[in-house]
Design a binder for these strands. Structure first.
Lengths: 67, 67
DNA sequence: ATGTGACTTACAGTCCGTT
DNA sequence: GAACGGACTGTAAGTCACA
């Protein structure tokens, strides 16, 4: 499984565990709702800056989302 | 310190510890030497696909390079 | 052996929508 | 609530010559 897909699955797991919708998380991270959807499905190739913002929005260390 | 700079410093540390030049690592990762230079100095904002290739070239888990 | 500026092309990321 | 599409803009990918 490639890193984008793994990242997406981790984001989804943490988001759902935190009880947020994609739209809520997208707003917190400052990205578009449709983009969050793509990221979670692993069909996008996000930059480190976006990884950093999503991690912050989820209140988790960025490295955890790649593990 | 932002994630791009942290990533760059980690890449440099691991590369030097492995006894490689920027050019050797760039070749292994399939990027230009000047690009590797930018990444190590944190002046680029690489995507997860690039992170994945560099991690593989360094024979290390991608998450380790964000930690 | 590395830092840097300039450059073109590919795609990251947005915003409108529909299913 | 989320998957998916189309059209758009900004910026990363990727390289090169030179310092």
């Amino acid at each position: 499984m490639d890193l984008c897909r793994r990242f997406g699955l981790n984001v989804k797991n943490v988001r759902v565990a935190a009880g947020h919708t994609q739209e809520e998380l997208a707003d917190l991270a400052g990205v578009a709702r449709s983009y969050m959807s793509d990221v979670e499905r692993g069909v996008r190739n996000p930059t480190l800056k976006v990884v950093e913002r999503i991690a912050k929005a989820l209140d988790i260390h960025p490295a955890k989302l790649l593990g």
